[in-house]
Design a binder for these strands. Structure first.
Length: 220
DNA sequence: TTCCGGATGC
DNA sequence: GCATCTGGAA
């Protein structure tokens, strides 16, 4: 079976199992942006608490976030952990949106994909996964998001030769072997997260895993 | 490689 | 208790 066929078959089985997930769990593109920073290396359930607290304080707003006292914002985002570094990362990103994009993240759509990506990557606190998450989930750019789950799970499946393969290399494998489709990239990443949280965990549960027939089970 | 860090499940 | 959680910078 070719890599392309395998990747597409895995998606079909996952979607059959979990249903269409339609990420990102947020109400607005701005909320997606906030979420991408807050979710860095933490569980999404913790981010939900932070977003809710920001909403309750009326702080889910560019100007209000930038002008509020640091302690106020930090208290809201505390459930997401790393609140000191994440506060500064948020400010860097929001300042960029204010100064370079006239206060609206959607203005990034006026640039081509690579230019938009490089602009995001130039911001302190925005790495490849965060940048790609914003591009895909807030702006509907056709780019595949790679995360720690993606590497772990597809190393085990047998598609990635090493667990610590370079981000761009992994991304290239997915994008070269899948149809260039925003909705597909969107849902596939969501499916991978769901699979990795529930089955392909650090200690995997292979017996009941939906893709066990397609997996080579390379565990460490 | 190490630090950042509270919430959650086991 | 303790391991883990949709990373990124130094």
């Amino acid at each position: 079976m070719t890599v392309s066929t395998l990747l597409n078959n895995i998606y079909r089985v996952l979607r059959e199992h979990f249903g269409y997930l339609n990420w990102w769990p947020a109400e607005t593109p701005f909320e997606v942006v906030i979420g991408t920073v807050l979710t860095q290396n933490v569980a999404w359930s913790n981010v939900e608490k932070s977003i809710l607290q920001l909403k309750e304080q009326g702080l889910l707003d560019l100007t209000r976030l930038l002008t509020s006292k640091p302690e106020i914002v930090k208290r809201c985002i505390m459930p997401s952990g790393y609140y000191n570094v994440k506060y500064h990362r948020l400010m860097e990103l929001l300042t960029f949106i204010k100064n370079e994009l006239k206060g609206d993240i959607l203005n990034l759509k006026k640039f081509d994909l690579l230019t938009a990506r490089n602009k995001l990557l130039s911001i302190r606190g925005v790495g490849k996964e965060t940048a790609d998450s914003i591009l895909l989930y807030a702006l509907d750019f056709p780019i595949f998001v790679v995360d720690a789950y993606t590497k772990r799970t597809f190393y085990r499946v047998g598609i990635l030769k090493r667990r610590d393969m370079d981000y761009d290399k992994v991304q290239e494998i997915f994008m070269k072997n899948l149809k260039r489709d925003v909705k597909l990239y969107n849902d596939y990443h969501a499916q991978i997260v769901e699979l990795s949280k529930n089955y392909c965990k650090k200690v995997p549960i292979c017996e009941s895993c939906p893709i066990k027939r397609l997996c080579r089970r390379i565990i460490d």
